[in-house]
């Protein structure tokens, strides 16, 4: 991939404020260096992150607002990495959800320092990655699709799918099979047959 296309720091830039934060120890697979910056972390040309521990937030609720204000709307993606380290997190998270809406920050939750470090790494790693991983899946083999197709109804599992294919040969025959015929395949009980039949004969669109 073309990582040099955009010019930006190749390392994660860490604010000196974060000195002593245990999550720094967890950033193992990306290089990082200190820098004099407004956000806590710079993860890409247009991406930055602030770190917030809920424990701290409960003691100093004003802190994070000051920090967000200091960013002055400069970054395109502003991640607020929140560490859930208290059990009574509901109130704080509710408030932060509202904040994220008003102040344009994207909240990411983590539950341990290891996970926090990993998120920072991930943002760096995927900085210029294409969205293929979350778009429609890449083409698969006939066999895979076949099994996936048949196992779509909830109760049908892979063993059943195999039984169905080996009995009928093609998808078309299987789709057209009568319930009585399918019932004779080992493993196919009434519930499964019913769900399968409904799935293949139900109309795509319903009218309400």
């Amino acid at each position: 991939q073309d990582l040099r296309a955009r010019t930006g720091p190749s390392n994660i830039i860490v604010s000196t404020r974060q000195k002593g934060n245990p999550i720094l120890k967890e950033i193992k697979n990306s290089a990082w260096e200190y820098g004099d910056i407004d956000p806590d972390y710079i993860l890409g040309v247009t991406t930055c992150a602030l770190f917030l521990s809920l424990k701290y937030h409960r003691l100093h609720p004003e802190y994070i607002y000051g920090r967000i204000r200091a960013l002055q709307g400069r970054w395109n993606l502003r991640v607020l990495l929140v560490m859930v380290d208290i059990t009574a997190h509901e109130e704080s998270l509710k408030e932060l959800s509202k904040t994220s809406l008003i102040n344009n920050v994207t909240i990411m939750l983590c539950w341990s320092t290891a996970e926090a470090g990993r998120y920072l790494e991930l943002y760096k790693v995927y900085e210029n990655a294409p969205a293929t991983a979350i778009k429609a899946p890449p083409s698969k083999s006939h066999g895979d699709r076949l099994i996936e197709f048949i196992t779509t109804p909830r109760s049908v599992n892979k063993t059943d799918a195999l039984g169905l294919v080996s009995n009928f040969g093609s998808v078309r025959t299987a789709v057209n099979a009568r319930p009585e015929e399918i019932l004779l395949i080992a493993g196919w009980g009434q519930t499964k047959v019913k769900q399968w039949n409904a799935a293949v004969s139900e109309p795509f669109r319903t009218r309400q």
């Binding site: 994207t106 909240i107 939750l109 990655a129």
Partner: peptide
């Protein structure tokens, strides 16, 4: 992570 990188305007609400 990839989702937020591609859609910086998308907000995420986490609910327990």
């Amino acid at each position: 992570v990839i989702l937020t990188l591609h859609f910086p305007r998308l907000r995420i609400v986490w609910s327990s």
